[in-house]
């Protein structure tokens, strides 16, 4: 009896978490063009997606933005992460607190403030502004991971390298950076996913011609939930899950193992 109750509890929790997604994915295979009655299995909606130029454009935008966001975030993230650990005193501490702020900041505030900023400085909204905006929070994730990795690293390694005759720059390139790679890679994977999925910040900072996939879905919803939207969401879901899984797996096996 106790086991039965336990099983039921687990079932309810997982159901609560995943049932909506199951419904969405199921409906993306439904023949019925409207409503939720099951009329048979079809892949039509998926093939229709691939012929919709608007959606393909949006996908292209999203991938392009996510790519540049990842590059920019990784560069800034590594620099900030190292500063956090290596710069002594209040300056390092100040940077470390400030740099992780974007993780905690409400996205709507972030989006709005970025928009105000771009308008104030007359920066035309487009893919460029979205990349900048995404990188502002993306770099914080990379920095956090880099910092954790750096703290786990034995400072003796760098000293040993210097002792063997390596200059400061050689120590960084040959010893420090190779140790940081796992953190940078899993951070990059996370940032790519975050940027690809982001709606709120993109909504405020994307201009004409910079419509990302989430924005495209939102605009499609104005005409009702079509099976086409379901199919698109299902695809995004699968890709995101895949990337996040790889990022977490990578982090657990590589970043956590320490130096």
């Amino acid at each position: 009896m106790k086991r039965l109750l336990e099983g039921l509890g687990v079932f309810l929790i997982y159901g609560f978490l995943f049932l909506p997604m199951v419904v969405l994915v199921t409906l993306s295979f439904n023949k019925a063009p409207r409503g939720i009655t099951w009329e048979g299995f079809t892949l039509d909606w998926y093939s229709k997606l691939l012929n919709d130029q608007g959606i393909l454009d949006a996908l292209n935008n999203s991938l392009e933005i996510a790519f540049w966001t990842t590059v920019l975030s990784s560069l800034i993230g590594v620099a900030v992460g190292i500063t956090k650990v290596r710069v002594p005193g209040w300056r390092g501490l100040g940077i470390s607190k400030l740099a992780s702020l974007p993780i905690l900041l409400p996205e709507i505030v972030q989006g709005l403030s970025l928009l105000c900023f771009f308008v104030l400085f007359a920066i035309p909204l487009g893919k460029f502004t979205v990349v900048i905006s995404h990188a502002s929070f993306g770099s914080a994730y990379v920095a956090t991971l880099v910092r954790a990795r750096l703290k786990a690293m034995d400072p003796l390694l760098e000293e040993a390298a210097a002792d063997l005759g390596a200059h400061e720059r050689a120590v960084f390139i040959k010893i420090t950076l190779p140790q940081l790679w796992p953190a940078v890679i899993s951070g990059a994977l996370m940032v790519f996913t975050l940027s690809f999925d982001d709606f709120i910040v993109s909504f405020f900072t994307a201009g004409v011609g910079a419509t990302t996939l989430p924005l495209k879905i939102y605009s499609m919803l104005k005409f009702g939930v079509t099976p086409e939207v379901n199919a698109l969401s299902a695809l995004i879901l699968v890709v995101s899950l895949l990337l996040v899984t790889v990022a977490f797996w990578h982090q657990r096996t590589k970043v956590a193992e320490g130096a």
């Binding site: 390694l157 000293e159 040993a160 063997l164 005759g165 140790q179």
Partner: peptide, 17 residues
């Protein structure tokens, strides 16, 4: 340190992993 003709074997070896 890197200009000295002196090298060190550290307690924890500090081999590059």
């Amino acid at each position: 340190a890197h200009h000295r003709d002196v090298h060190t074997v550290f307690q924890r070896y500090a081999l590059f992993p």
